Amino acid sequence: GTEIELESKNGQREHYTATSEDEARKIIEKAVRRGIKRIELRGASEQLIRDMQEIAKQIGLQYRTDGSL
């Protein structure tokens, strides 16, 4: 699965493990709508990382991946 670590603007951290790319995408989209400061992805697919970079650029988000592409 993909591990997703979120940090909201007030510094609250949340951790999710998505079993599918679809689920990961839903978690990320929800977080973005809620207003999130930072997202870290571990074990994400190349496609998901590309999507994440696109989203991050659009809304000026900090993100990090573990680089295991």
Score class of each variant (00 low, 15 high):
R64I: 15
Q12Y: 08
K37R: 14
K9D: 13
E3W: 13
Q47T: 09
G35K: 03
I49Y: 10
L61H: 04
A31V: 07
E3P: 02
A24E: 00
S20K: 03
L41E: 01
Q12L: 12
R33I: 11
G60T: 04
L41Q: 00
T19V: 13
E23G: 04
N10L: 07
L41S: 00
K37M: 11
Q53N: 11
S8G: 12
T17I: 14
E3F: 14
A56D: 01
E7L: 15
R33S: 10
G43I: 01
I49W: 07
Q62A: 10
Q53S: 11
E5S: 13
D66R: 01
L61R: 03
R33A: 12
T2S: 03
K26R: 12
T19P: 06
Q62R: 09
E21F: 05
I27H: 02
I4N: 01
G1R: 13
I27V: 04
E23D: 08
R64M: 15
T2A: 05
T17L: 14
G43Q: 07
D22F: 08
E46I: 13
V32I: 15
Q62T: 13
E40S: 13
E40Q: 13
R13H: 13
K26F: 10
E46G: 07
R33G: 10
T19K: 11
E5L: 13
A56H: 04
V32Y: 05
Q62N: 06
A56Q: 03
R64H: 15
E3M: 08
E7G: 02
T2H: 04
E7I: 12
R38G: 05
M52C: 09
N10P: 03
Q53I: 15
E7D: 04
R13F: 09
T2C: 13
R50N: 08
G11E: 01
R50W: 08
K57D: 11
I59F: 15
S20N: 14
G67S: 05
L6K: 01
H15T: 10
N10I: 05
R42D: 03
E46S: 10
Q53W: 11
S68Q: 10
E29H: 07
Q12C: 14
T65R: 03
R33Q: 14
Y63L: 15
E29D: 08
G35H: 05
Y63K: 03
Q12T: 12
K37Q: 09
T65K: 06
R50T: 07
R33D: 07
I28Y: 02
S8C: 14
G35Y: 03
M52K: 00
H15D: 02
S8H: 15
G67H: 06
E29V: 07
T2P: 09
M52F: 10
D66N: 05
R50E: 06
T65G: 14
I49K: 07
G67Q: 07
D66A: 04
A31L: 08
G67R: 02
T65L: 05
E23T: 03
R13C: 11
T19W: 13
D66E: 09
Q62Y: 14
G35R: 04
S68D: 08
Y16C: 08
A31C: 06
R34W: 05
S20V: 01
E29Y: 10
S45V: 02
I55L: 14
D22L: 06
K26V: 09
D51E: 11
R50Q: 08
V32Q: 02
K9S: 12
